[in-house]
């Protein structure tokens, strides 16, 4: 029986891609005032970012309930008895908790492995995708979980922020708080380190940000998979993909959009470059 892969919506794996890979995506929730939406299900990214910049109150977000995971586990348990769950960094969200609690509620012989991706967005998504590919090639739960754990340590994320306002307000700023309070308008570039946001450097403009991101990956050597994402500026992300085309075959570069729940913290005009360093 094939192992089924579950991830959450912060992986930025689109519905189409999920279908193609046979992945199940559990959505988190984003809330504007009284209105609650399932991430990417009840609200599109376009609609979300439009409201993020126009509405006076900032949205808030909620992890999936244990029951959300339980329903998915039970449904999948009818088709398989091995489930691999890859969730957003437990330092950024309580999703890991929900997934774990749900696991304890599952009766029957279905085995469930939960992996803390220690990342977010496609940094998490690329791990889920590589797991799905391994499973397609017939990997067992043990093997797939093992590969996923290795992928966690090979996954990197570099994010360009137009502002840290959203990250700070949402309480997810982590070690990047030192970048707050600049008297100049600067664009912070952060990474994720041990599951938490951590500073890399600062630039003064988007194009300098693109230069920096390109420079990092160019200096990395072998890269197995990579992805570029935007919140509200697709052209800038496309420009980065265009430049990366000089280094990598275009089909290896995945393109996605930062999900509403992550966008709540990333804000408008954010870009993310994520990649899986090649296994040694």
């Amino acid at each position: 029986m094939t192992v089924k892969i579950v991830t959450d919506s912060l992986s930025d794996i689109t519905e189409d891609l999920a279908r193609e890979l046979g992945l199940t995506v559990v959505p988190l929730y984003v809330r504007f005032g009284e209105d609650i939406y399932r991430d990417r299900v009840d609200i599109t990214t376009e609609e979300f970012y439009r409201r993020l910049v126009t509405e006076s109150t900032l949205p808030s977000t909620t992890q999936p309930t244990p029951n959300d995971f339980l329903e998915v586990y039970q449904k999948l348990a009818k088709e398989t008895d091995e489930i691999l769950v890859i969730v957003v960094s437990s330092k950024l969200s309580g999703t890991y908790q929900s997934a774990t609690q749900a696991k304890q509620m599952v009766s029957g012989k279905c085995r469930i492995e939960i992996i803390d991706s220690l990342s977010v967005a496609m940094g998490q998504g690329l791990i889920a995708i590589s797991s799905a590919e391994a499973v397609k090639k017939g990997a067992s739960l043990e093997k797939a979980a093992d590969l996923a754990r290795q992928a966690v340590s090979r996954s990197h994320l570099i994010a360009y922020f137009d502002t840290l306002k959203y990250l700070a307000k949402g309480g997810r700023i982590g070690k990047a708080s030192g970048l707050l309070g600049s008297m100049l308008s600067v664009k912070p570039i952060l990474t994720i380190k041990e599951g938490e946001m951590s500073p890399l450097t600062r630039v003064r403009s988007m194009s300098a940000g693109l230069d920096y991101m390109y420079g990092v990956i160019a200096g990395y050597g072998k890269v197995e998979a990579l992805a570029v994402e935007h919140s509200t500026t697709p052209d800038d992300a496309d420009a980065l993909v265009e430049r990366l085309g000089a280094l990598f075959p275009r089909e290896r570069i995945r393109r996605s959009i930062i999900s509403p729940v992550v966008g709540t913290y990333a804000g408008p005009k954010a870009l993310a470059l994520t990649f899986l360093e090649a296994a040694r």
Partner: peptide, 8 residues
Amino acid sequence: ALLAFDYE
């Protein structure tokens, strides 16, 4: 120069 400081 200070802005270019790389935390990693």
